[in-house]
């Protein structure tokens, strides 16, 4: 059997149109050997969840710079769960104040990366925590 390949979706929910960071992340994931599905900006949580299921990804990485992460990140997780895909992991990145971390963890977001995080540390986290599902 060929090896399992990790499939990761990089998505930008909400209104902010700055996708430079998301593109950098997508390239970095490709260089780490993942198959990256990039969906572009201005995605609704419903669109992201539907796409994640159609693409059978192991992980959804959300990027949000607009400050709406408290609403958007949990909304994506909720949409996935409602569609029977609670096994798809969700992580988030962006300008996220410390005091929001616990709230996001409590709502199913597995990890949060702020602008200080190195790309290597994100890849390392994924390699340690996400296994392609059986």
């Amino acid at each position: 059997m060929a090896e399992r390949k990790l499939r990761v979706m990089v998505a930008k929910p909400g209104l902010d149109g700055h996708d430079r960071g998301a593109r950098v992340l997508a390239r970095c994931f490709r260089d780490a050997g993942f198959e990256v599905i990039y969906t572009g900006c201005h995605q609704t949580p419903e669109q992201i969840a539907a796409a994640a299921i159609q693409e059978d990804v192991d992980l959804v990485g959300l990027s949000c710079l607009s400050g709406a992460h408290r609403y958007l990140f949990p909304a994506v997780k909720k949409q996935l769960v409602e569609r029977g895909a609670d096994d798809i992991m969700v992580i988030g990145g962006g300008i996220i104040p410390d005091q929001d971390f616990q709230y996001l963890y409590d709502n199913g977001i597995k990890a949060i990366f702020t602008p200080g995080a190195t790309l290597d540390s994100i890849v390392e986290w994924i390699n340690n925590n996400v296994k392609p599902r059986e």
Binding site: F29, R30, T39, A51, E55
Partner: peptide, 22 residues
């Protein structure tokens, strides 16, 4: 395309089709 160097790939065609996602 898959990168021959890393085995990874960026699959970006979907960007243009996302309005049909739902």
């Amino acid at each position: 395309p898959t990168s021959p160097f890393t085995g990874g790939a960026i699959l970006g065609d979907r960007i243009r089709m996302q309005r049909h996602a739902e």
